[in-house]
Design a protein around this nucleic acid. Structure first.
Lengths: 215, 215
DNA sequence: CCACTAATTATGCAAACGTATAATTAGTGA
DNA sequence: TCACTAATTATACGTTTGCATAATTAGTGG
């Protein structure tokens, strides 16, 4: 009777794990959390649902792993933009701001993904830890970049003021990122990046130039 | 047997509707979307679940109504802060900024509520309309306040630049609101409001003073 | 005080959910 | 090629979900 059992191949563990995480992220981003059921995730990853339990002892664990991966990729992407931006602290700061406010960082799916996770963050301890670490990482990076830029231009700022500048710049970037992703039609192309550069310039008192095409 | 049927009283329709909406908002804010089931909502509103269907033909409709109400209250609250802030355009702008960055507007539950809704916004047309209108209202209010403040201080700005200033200020307020709500322990009391005032000051080039205690 | 209406409760249903467990089968080493 | 292991499929279970429908009962107008 049951002679139509599904064929399959055994993939390396890390690869299967990754495929399941990708499927989870894609589903949440595209159709929302409620669409990311174990059955849908399995279908998207082209396996049967039982396999999920073989790699993640609970669905919560899968979602949490997906969150960590997603946040890690976001931080890596912006960090990479800085490192490829050359030498000058001011130019590096400008690159950081602009990169965070352009595709692929500014993206409807990324925003929706982030919002989906924010709910769970409150009730899942592991996710909350990831959340706080990611935020701190972002702000520390920004603070370091601002500090260097201020030094380069010969301005003096105490610790307390520096912290406030970093919080403010981080907030304006977050806000623009959010609105650029959630309401894409409201902005002209590249407007978030332009406004972000102008705003950060005003806040820290250093003119940041858009360094596109300087590679 | 069934001689213990639940007692009840017939409430005015608007009151019941409101109670159901309040229960929905409270549940989503406190325990997340997945906890806001029809049964839990009914329990929180102290009715049985069948009644929900009597006031809302579908759960989606209830959630959508709750979203509209929540957003309306947010806009009303900030708008009220402006109107009670007196005459001077600069003072009014300062009041608007500060009010949006202090309790009760800055609040973990409000942020979590907002994030919960953001997912649904993409797939529910009615909610998307509400979302876009709310954002536009906020920004238009801010733009008007900035325009008046600039005129008061004798600065000239064209339409395009004004729009950009409004977007930037809105973004920094949103970002601070978000972070202040999502990571309350990261900030000192009133720090979001202080940083917000300083940042908006820097962006538009007008010093905004904190007007607390000027009533 | 009685009949009538609709607000409310009570009960039920089919579908979907996460999880558990049993049955298979692909790959591996002897 | 043959057993062995674990990766994978298949099936099932108990809950919970949103929604529907029938049974009651609180309030109202005559």
């Amino acid at each position: 009777m049951a002679d139509h059992r599904r064929k399959f191949s055994r993939e390396p563990a890390s690869q299967r794990r990754d495929a399941l995480i990708r499927a989870t992220l894609a589903l949440i981003a595209e159709k929302g959390v409620q669409a990311a059921t174990v059955r849908e995730i399995a279908k998207a990853a082209n396996v049967t649902q039982g396999l999920i339990r073989h790699y993640f002892s609970t669905k919560e664990e899968l979602v949490s792993a997906a969150y960590e991966q997603h946040m890690g990729e976001l931080t890596d992407a912006t960090l990479a933009s800085v490192q490829s931006a050359g030498q000058s602290p001011v130019a590096r700061l400008a690159a950081y701001v602009a990169a965070g406010l352009r595709p692929p960082i500014v993206d409807p799916n990324a925003v929706s993904l982030w919002a989906s996770f924010l709910n769970r963050v409150r009730h899942d301890e592991r996710m909350r830890t990831t959340h706080e670490r990611t935020y701190r990482d972002f702000r520390d990076q920004l603070e370091a970049l601002i500090k260097d830029a201020l030094m380069e231009t010969g301005k003096k700022t105490d610790e307390r003021e520096l912290r406030r500048l970093a919080i403010a710049c981080n907030a304006v970037i977050d806000g623009l990122w959010l609105e650029g992703g959630a309401l894409p039609d409201t902005f002209e192309p590249d407007e978030p990046a332009q406004i972000g550069l102008a705003s950060v310039s005003a806040i820290i008192g250093i003119e940041l130039k858009d360094e596109v095409g300087t590679s």
